[in-house]
């Protein structure tokens, strides 16, 4: 059993960091083509090795530190950013249970019964990283950036918690694996009955990961990338890696689990599932999960490279006066209707 868990850990860590680095290339290509540029083209075929070159460059760079900064907090912020973001993947189910020989393997690291609670606890910890980074840098821009992030936390964290309560009520569990199982048993992706919650979740996801239109903590036009401004080399590289790629991936995965039925194929509500990828056999589930995940990730990129930035008061206003009432209404309706249908 230990061996299986170790293998899972290795796969997840490799996947998170490797994929995160590779997604920088995806983003640069996408951003380039939106602006009618080709993006990186020189290193490797169509810039395929660009992430390696970037990593090499960042690692060999000089490690600068602001003279009046707080060195302990400065380094702690990096760890606080990376570790919770990577830990979220411990509770994400990548596919259905399968068996190799006599061992049956669940492709999820720990199927704890408070999985979703863990996800949002870790998500909240990422904010500490940003606040600490800004404080420890002892720089105006960094501090403004982290204060902005701390300012919008109270808007999106409340909203995201209320948004996910709808699917939780429908599934009757907090375990991510069980939520997907329930969706398959009920023959229903929860997005069909929770579209409002899904949109609100997307809103909060963009705010949490610092993506446009809610990237006020970075705001390169005003704050020269905000809280990361005093970081250099790979320390600088880690923050966008974590915020823009690892967190977007983990929150997209949670969205797939909650609303899009995890590894289940295309759903016709209450009737069943249609699987155009049936020829892949046991791999079909994993492929569906990856497809949904990449679709959500590309949607995030698409929004990022289209929209302008909101002001902090506008974000708070949207969150408290539009999104929160919507989710509350949604929550009440779900709580009334769900027992009538499924219990």
């Amino acid at each position: 059993m230990i061996a299986v868990i170790l293998i899972k850990v290795l796969i997840i860590v490799a996947l998170v960091l490797g994929l995160g680095a590779f997604l920088t290339l995806v983003e640069r290509k996408f951003a380039g083509h939106v602006q009618r540029r080709p993006g990186p083209m020189v290193v490797g075929w169509h810039g395929l090795l660009q992430p390696l070159a970037d990593g090499l460059k960042l690692i060999t760079k000089e490690d600068l530190f602001p003279s009046m900064g707080n060195r302990i907090l400065y380094n702690l912020a990096i760890i606080l950013a990376l570790v919770p973001a990577a830990l979220v993947f411990a509770v994400i189910p990548f596919g259905p249970e399968f068996s190799i020989g006599s061992i049956s393997v669940k492709p999820i690291l720990t199927d704890v019964n408070v999985g979703l609670l863990l996800v949002f606890a870790f998500g909240s910890m990422a904010v500490f990283a940003i606040a600490l980074a800004g404080w420890a840098s002892n720089s105006k821009y960094a501090l403004i950036g982290s204060m902005r992030k701390a300012g919008i936390v109270i808007s999106y964290e409340v909203v995201i918690t209320f948004a996910v309560m709808g699917p939780i009520i429908l599934a009757g569990t907090l375990s991510t694996y069980e939520i997907v199982q329930n969706q398959i048993q009920q023959k229903l992706w929860y997005i069909w009955v929770q579209p409002i919650a899904f949109i609100v979740y997307l809103f909060a996801m963009l705010a949490e990961t610092g993506r446009v239109p809610f990237d006020i903590q970075e705001a390169e036009a005003e704050l020269v990338t905000g809280f990361t401004v005093e970081y250099g080399g790979m320390k600088f590289g880690l923050f966008p890696l974590v915020e823009w790629y690892v967190e977007v991936l983990s929150l997209s995965a949670i969205a797939v689990v909650l609303f899009l039925g995890g590894w289940s194929p295309i759903n016709i509500p209450f009737i069943g599932f249609v699987d155009p990828l049936f020829f892949l056999g046991p791999f079909s589930g994993f492929v569906w999960f990856i497809l949904k995940l990449s679709a959500l990730f590309l949607l995030t990129l698409w929004i990022h490279w289209t929209l302008p930035r909101y002001r902090i008061d506008q974000i708070t206003q949207i969150a408290w006066s539009v999104m929160l009432p919507l989710t509350l209404v949604n929550l009440v309706l779900t709580a009334i209707i769900a027992p009538l249908i499924w219990r």
Partner: peptide, 21 residues
């Protein structure tokens, strides 16, 4: 209005690039 903006960017994304290498 979001959709309008999104449709513009995705249409540009599939056109030919106009840069020089």
């Amino acid at each position: 209005d979001f959709m309008k903006g999104l449709s513009i960017t995705i249409r540009q994304a599939f056109k030919r690039t106009i840069t020089t290498h």
